[in-house]
Design a protein around this nucleic acid. Structure first.
Length: 485
RNA sequence: CGGGGCGUAGCGCAGUUGGUAGCGCAUCUGGUUUGGGACCAGAGGGUCGCUGGUUCGAGUCCAGUCGCCCCGACCA
């Protein structure tokens, strides 16, 4: 083997990830592993969320949890084991989830009388408890959220995007009237939208699911859908109007003020660790992750450029770190010895840290600091005294730039289709999401899948201004259609 | 669950016709270095995924099995 000359390039290739444009699947896997977000586990389809990835999840939790509570919800925790007889009470619900439920059949060496489902979602167990807790209209509404793990036995899994076990929050509410339940459903969809667009900088399309695509057991499902750079949509959060389906199945009834016993109206809504996968896919580039400042575990990293005899640079770096921490920047000082600055640059770029702060002898002399943006790669020198204000401003700018860049992709990859041929071309050739009119029939909906592998992601608020692109009959809905993760 | 690919040191890989396992990175020690992934010298590290078979001898051949990745049918 030829060593000396190729050594450097070989090493570089080894350290780098597969270019995103070349193979987005491999790129995704490379980045997740190399940024130490997650690792594969010995159990098929499961992953370990590593500290850096978990810190991101904690930031997500913090923001969502505060919003849930602000809107009157309380957290609780329900068991992960659900008796089989509970799960089978709501017919559509069982049918929908049966293929992906994991079962516990034994306790120790003894076989259980009734096997227990490991929750794929908690409507059943929570419905059971609500039936017990709710007696009067005065007990309503019930507004509960839980942060939990759930298990769905998926055939194809990928870190964050689809894992056998995943973390999420699931809100479960019960209301006196359908109107009130619908308000809750839309309110929570709005919470998701605001969070994903505002904090994760991921632009969305949102709306109602088709009956075919709705949650098993719901009356209607509303979704937020993000579009990945390969043109595939990712369902990133859902809010369900469960009508009285679960109330009837679990006998959730209350005595109303008119003396009548009535079934409650329930909702549920959830967002999972999948959203981390969305952020990775949408924002990442060939150098690695690009995390939005609002959720980044490390918002700025300080890297001292140290020469052996220059203790003053280290001292200055510590000062910079403290000053940034004092204005609530999540800052990290990397003063490890034995790593060259260039190596550190690459590492924090891989990890998606929004801003790098370099400080060296030259900067000390000029009374300045060097800042490098992760989103644009732009390098700038600012007077020492302007550090705090500049960093704070850059956090805003980087957040906005990431959103704008993603919004541009969403815009370019949302293609209006007036004919079926245009629809197929949008999906297959342009690797985009199609925006089209549809008659509402299951037959035509099936054609999207059959001819392009695409599904209706959600209804679009836009005007229904053409005939159904499939059958040519009068259209009922304007819809977004895309292939999906 | 179908089609394809891959399992060899922590990671990435090589291993010819079957002959007793190697390279780079990483790690450890010492030294010189440090503004875009440093260099020199030395050291440690392996049940070749697993099981069985063929053979004097298997990382290599055969069968089975498990796992992972990619592409399709089902799903947050």
């Amino acid at each position: 083997m030829n060593k000396p000359n190729t050594q450097n390039t070989n090493k570089k290739n080894m350290e780098a990830v597969t270019p995103k444009s070349e193979d987005i699947s491999r790129w995704y896997t490379d980045v997740v592993l190399k940024a130490r977000m997650a690792d594969y586990s010995p159990v098929k389809g499961c992953m370990i969320i590593r500290p850096y990835g978990y810190a991101l999840w904690e930031n997500i939790q913090k923001i969502l949890d505060a919003e849930f509570k602000r809107l009157g919800h309380q957290n609780a925790y329900f068991p992960m084991f659900i008796p089989e007889s509970f799960l089978t009470k709501e017919a559509e619900h069982v049918e929908g989830f049966a293929p992906e439920v994991a079962w516990v059949t034994h306790g120790g060496s003894e076989e259980l009388e009734e096997r227990l489902a490991i929750r794929p979602t908690s409507e059943a167990i929570i419905g059971h408890m609500y039936a017990k807790w709710i007696e009067s209209y005065r007990d309503l509404p019930v507004l509960i959220n839980q942060w939990a793990n759930v298990v769905r036995w998926e055939k194809v899994t990928r870190p964050f995007l689809r894992t056998t076990e995943f973390l999420w929050q699931e809100g479960h509410t019960a209301h006196r009237t359908h109107e009130e339940a619908c308000e809750e459903v839309m309110q929570m969809l709005g919470v998701y939208r605001k969070f994903v667009e505002g904090s994760l900088a991921i632009p969305l399309v949102t709306g109602e699911k088709s009956q075919k695509e709705k949650f098993a057991g719901a009356l209607n499902t509303y979704t937020i859908e993000a579009l990945m750079p390969d043109g595939q949509a990712l369902q990133s959060g859902t809010s369900h109007d469960l009508g009285q389906n679960f109330a009837k199945a679990f006998d959730i009834r209350f005595l109303d003020s008119d003396g009548e016993r009535k079934y409650a109206w329930t909702t549920s809504w959830g967002m999972s660790t999948r959203i981390i996968g969305a952020a990775i896919m949408v924002h990442g580039d060939d150098r690695g992750l690009r995390l939005p400042p609002k959720v980044a575990p490390i918002q700025a990293v300080v890297i001292p450029i140290v020469y052996k005899d220059s203790q003053d640079v280290i001292i200055k770096a510590r000062e910079l770190m403290k000053r940034l921490a004092a204005c609530d920047i999540r800052v990290h000082l990397d003063d490890r010895e034995g790593f060259k600055p260039g190596w550190k640059y690459s590492e924090y770029e891989m990890m998606g840290v929004p801003l790098r702060v370099e400080i060296g002898q030259k900067d000390l002399e000029k009374n300045q600091v060097c800042l490098v943006r992760r989103d644009t790669g732009e390098k700038m020198f600012v007077p020492d005294a302007e550090l705090e204000t500049t960093v704070q401003r850059l956090m805003e700018e980087i957040q906005q730039t990431l959103f704008n860049q993603a919004a541009e992709i969403l815009k370019n990859k949302t293609v209006r289709a007036l004919t079926f041929a245009e629809f197929v071309a949008a999906i297959k050739e342009k690797q985009s999401m199609a925006d089209l009119c549809w008659c509402g029939s299951l037959e035509c909906e099936a054609k999207f899948k059959a001819e392009a592998g695409a599904t209706i992601r959600c209804f679009n608020d836009g005007p229904v201004d053409t005939a159904c692109v499939v059958c040519g009959k009068p259209a009922q809905k304007r819809v977004f259609v895309a292939r999906a993760y």
